[in-house]
């Protein structure tokens, strides 16, 4: 009788292990990377007076990239930019960009992106769909992301690199000031990240 119970218990454990194994294996394929702000860049450009491009950057941001190399659909991206860290090389202009005329950073200190789906286009290119939130307005955004490379940093940590360039219309996020005054609606954004495996 005791032997029968023991065998049944072992059978349950075996079944459970069979059930958990694929999940554990799936988790093993998903690798989490944290964006290294020192070696990553968020740059934007916007046309001024319909004449020339003005460039700027955000100096403070963070993000997490979960990569599933075998099944990219299981991957995800979350990225958060400190809107207060805007830097165009002119303190007067930066203060103006922080004001309610543009980013209204006191009310909306963060710009956020959260992916909703990811699919592979070719070996090094992915299509990332997600929600971009600027100044309290969330809109869907689809971007093409290029896988740049993989390696190890001087500390021996595994690192991975991606880059994307996309264009948004600032008016769609309520950042409409100056549209008639010579600052274009279209803003081209380039995000280049190096992320460290966790």
């Amino acid at each position: 009788m005791r032997q029968v119970r023991k065998n049944r218990w072992l059978a349950y454990c075996g079944g459970l292990a069979l059930l958990i194994a694929p999940i554990a294996s799936a988790n093993a394929q998903r690798v989490t990377y944290r964006v290294d702000p020192v070696h990553s860049f968020v740059i934007f450009r916007v046309k001024h007076m319909n004449t020339a491009y003005a460039y700027g950057r955000f100096n403070s941001f963070s993000g997490t990239i979960v990569v599933d190399e075998k099944n990219p659909a299981n991957s995800s991206v979350e990225f958060e930019i400190d809107a207060n860290s805007i830097d165009t090389g002119n303190s007067q202009r930066d203060d103006h960009l922080r004001s309610p005329d543009f980013f209204n950073v006191r009310q909306y200190p963060k710009i956020r992106f959260k992916s909703t789906s990811i699919r592979r286009i070719n070996a090094n290119t992915f299509e990332v769909r997600g929600d971009l939130t600027i100044r309290g307005t969330t809109r869907p955004l689809t971007v093409r992301v290029t896988y740049v490379g993989k390696g190890r940093n001087p500390r021996g940590q595994e690192i991975i690199g991606f880059e994307t360039t996309f264009t948004i219309k600032r008016s769609q996020f309520g950042v409409s000031y100056g549209l008639n005054g010579g600052l274009a609606d279209e803003v081209r954004v380039t995000i280049a990240v190096e992320a460290i495996r966790q």
């Binding site: 309610p100 209204n104 009310q107 100044r135 309520g174 409409s176 000031y177």
Partner: peptide, 14 residues
């Protein structure tokens, strides 16, 4: 003229 007609409720407190 300055901002356009804001949505209700406005996303921007101002």
């Amino acid at each position: 003229f300055v901002h356009g007609r804001p949505p209700f409720p406005p996303t921007d407190a101002t």
